[in-house]
Design a protein around this nucleic acid. Structure first.
Length: 575
DNA sequence: AATTCGTCCTGC
DNA sequence: TCAGGCAGGACGAATT
């Protein structure tokens, strides 16, 4: 993320099994071009990486980096043309984006996403139709378009930070996928057995789950009741006199009937079995690692998405199965109340920043006198960021508006822009999508003289919906940028910590993830680092330093801290 | 038979 | 423990 003086870019492209390479100097002029066989290219890259550490320019990290990682090569910096294209194409900070928008081939999904769907027909051809263009020619053309767009941008500095952070994220996502999250299958199995009961050898539901199902059927006085089909269960409930409209937990719990408690418990357990039961364990945990697929920029706001294994929805209950290797530890850190802190900084709201000083932002709001209790503060803040209008949250938001007018003006403005069909932009320059054609049509129709009342009502509702989206977009998106900066800086700090081969007698060979501290998990505002025990202190310090760096990188000297909740988890030695 | 839709629950 | 934002995954039901 730091600026460099003379090191330029090296652009990579594929050419029928070989690698085509163009070296650009710091001003972007091409100084050298060559074609190398794949095997030679890996060595050449490794040599250039250690000699000059250029910013590697490639079409798509998912198409290039896994192979390099498998060969033991890690790169410090890249420019991911696919991800950067998406940002620049839509950013309101880019004044001339016509050329980028015309280059629609770069709107393609990542090679990896498409490859998963078509492994059966994978012909391993560079010219395949999946992913963005992979030739050197196309990469150079797109890179030129992107630099052109940046040159004319109204706040190129911020956009450059965003592109660097997004690209670093692309590297980190592949590295974390390759490294995996240390996962103790035996511990997971023990949790399942403890919660769900014993699996019958002949198959079928585990004992506790089956007992619960029988109890539910007994209480319903319906021996054949189907508990796994929503409509059928609903009918059974109605027959038993429980007049719910849905089978969701919150509605069930409003009723008083002996079937409710076991039914809710049944649904909870059956959910665990279906989502993260033994078959999940078998499918996703190999050799003590959970290998999720992360998708940087997979969410419109810039948050990461994931694909496969539900990596971002791991139930808290299973966190105990995340265990460091023997002789290693996990450093687990999350940011307390990231989004409201980001909002305070974006809005330069000194009063909200003052409330955020110290550990707990919600207590700070209570201390300022805006609301009476911590839970009210939390409800009010969430309501402010999500656009709540009703209930307790809707009643509390006005109090917040009086206490923190600057912060509230920022989200209120974002909502108004969205309602009017406009586009909002995060701190570093990621813009929200434009409203759909259908949305625009409806708003237009509703303003015409002969518009029906129904149209007007619907138009107003859609407008409010979009307002809530853009209101949340600026905060969630900027929080995602903060988190990316945190990750990217941390990765750099971890890279310069010693490998255990230098302090220990471990073998030098093998994947780099077996020798040094590495990121193992990331979830919006939480990171997990897997590290040799000897480096726990250094890693913890790096995690904190990076958080504070991220705050300064985005918000300069605005007085706001981002306190971490940091834990070290070490696997107990077995005697 | 295959695909899409709806519901519910998990995470932030 | 709902309202109010962003997601993914499972599974049954509806649709083609």
């Amino acid at each position: 993320m730091t600026s460099t003086v003379s090191v330029g870019w090296i652009v990579l492209g594929r050419m029928s099994g070989d690698i085509a390479i163009a070296v650009l100097d710091a001003t972007g002029d091409e100084t050298e071009r060559m074609v190398l066989a794949k095997a030679d290219a890996v060595q050449w890259l490794e040599e250039r990486e250690s000699a000059v550490a250029p910013r590697w320019v490639w079409s798509d990290a998912t198409a290039w980096y896994p192979e390099l990682l498998a060969a033991g090569v890690r790169l410090a910096r890249c420019h991911d043309l696919r991800l950067c294209h998406a940002i620049l194409r839509d950013s309101t900070l880019v004044t001339a984006a016509d050329d980028l928008r015309a280059a629609t081939a770069w709107d393609a999904a990542s090679a990896q996403t498409t490859a998963q769907a078509s492994t059966l027909f994978d012909l391993d051809e560079g010219s395949s139709t999946t992913g963005p263009p992979s030739s050197l020619h196309e990469a150079l053309a797109e890179f030129a378009r992107q630099r052109q767009a940046l040159a004319g941008a109204s706040d190129a500095g911020r956009l450059r930070l965003l592109l660097a952070a997004e690209s670093a994220g692309a590297l980190i996502a592949e590295e974390m996928r390759a490294a995996g999250l240390p996962w103790d299958a035996a511990a997971h199995d023990a949790i399942l057995t403890e919660t769900l009961g014993i699996r019958p050898p002949g198959g079928g539901p585990p004992t506790r789950l089956r007992e619960l199902a029988e109890r539910v059927r007994r209480e319903l006085d319906d021996p054949a009741a189907s508990l796994d089909s929503q409509p059928k269960l609903l009918r059974s409930l109605h027959r038993a006199g429980i007049l719910v409209e849905s089978t969701s937990r919150w509605e069930l719990s409003e009723h008083d009937h002996p079937v409710i408690a076991p039914l809710i418990e049944y649904k909870k357990l059956s959910r665990l079995l279906a989502a993260n039961g033994w078959s999940w364990l078998e499918e996703w945990v190999k050799d003590g690692r959970f290998h999720p697929v992360y998708i940087p920029g997979g969410v419109v706001t810039g948050r990461w998405a994931s694909s496969g294994g539900g990596a971002l929805q791991l139930p808290r209950q299973l966190r105990a199965a995340v265990r460091a290797d023997p002789g290693w530890a996990l450093v687990i850190a999350d940011v307390a109340q990231l989004e409201p802190r980001v909002l305070a900084a974006m809005a330069r709201d000194d009063r909200l920043a003052a409330a955020a000083r110290g550990r707990d932002l919600y207590e700070g709001i209570v201390d300022s006198g805006a609301v009476a209790t911590r839970s009210q503060a939390k409800t009010a803040i969430l309501g402010a960021m999500y656009g709540a209008t009703t209930g307790e949250s809707g009643r509390l938001v006005p109090k917040l508006r009086r206490a923190y007018p600057q912060a509230m003006a920022l989200v209120d403005d974002a909502a108004r822009v969205g309602e009017e069909g406009g586009v909002v932009t995060t701190w570093l320059g990621r813009s929200s999508p434009s409203p759909s054609g259908g949305w625009r049509d409806l708003q237009l129709r509703a303003t015409e003289a002969e518009a029906s009342g129904a149209d007007e009502t619907r138009a107003r509702r859609w407008a409010r919906d979009r307002g809530r989206f853009t209101r949340n977009f600026v905060v969630q998106g900027t929080a995602a940028e903060w988190a990316l900066a945190w990750l990217a800086d941390l990765r750099g700090r971890l890279a310069v910590l010693p490998q255990i081969s230098e302090t220990d007698s471990a073998p030098r060979s093998g994947p780099v993830f077996q020798r040094s501290p590495h990121l193992a998990f990331f979830l919006h505002d939480e990171i997990v680092v897997h590290t040799p025990l000897a480096l726990v202190e250094e890693v913890s310090e790096a995690v904190r330093a990076s958080a504070s760096f991220a705050g300064r990188l985005l918000f300069g000297d605005f007085p706001l801290d981002f306190p971490l909740d940091l834990k070290v988890a070490q696997t107990a030695e077995k005697a």
